[in-house]
């Protein structure tokens, strides 16, 4: 029902985390997922991580997600 985007956790401070998606850093609340760790890929909806996804799954999403980003220099890595 809602948008959620994949991002990788770069820093955790209590239930709050910083997570990065292609040069964009967002804040995410981790209280809805079990045992989050730095480096984990998460699916973020309205400021909350709603699930953990594994890295290859995240890259699968990002590959689909390249969308209009492919215009310059082909699909960029994550």
């Amino acid at each position: 029902m809602c948008l959620a985007i994949p991002a990788q956790i770069t820093r955790i401070d209590g239930v709050r985390a910083q997570a990065v998606l292609r040069g964009n850093e967002i804040e995410a609340d981790l209280s809805l997922i079990d045992d989050p760790k730095t480096g984990d890929w998460i699916l973020v909806h309205a400021g909350f991580a709603i699930e953990r996804i594994d890295e290859s799954e995240a890259r699968e999403t990002l590959a689909l997600f390249a969308e209009m980003g492919e215009g310059i220099g082909g699909p960029a890595g994550v």
Partner: peptide
């Protein structure tokens, strides 16, 4: 033509985060 319109990957990702159409 969507595939010809240049958008930086980080900008495309930011648009997805914010739910905006570039």
């Amino acid at each position: 033509h969507e595939e010809d319109i240049p958008v930086r990957p980080e900008t495309a990702a930011a648009c997805s985060i914010l739910g905006l159409d570039p």
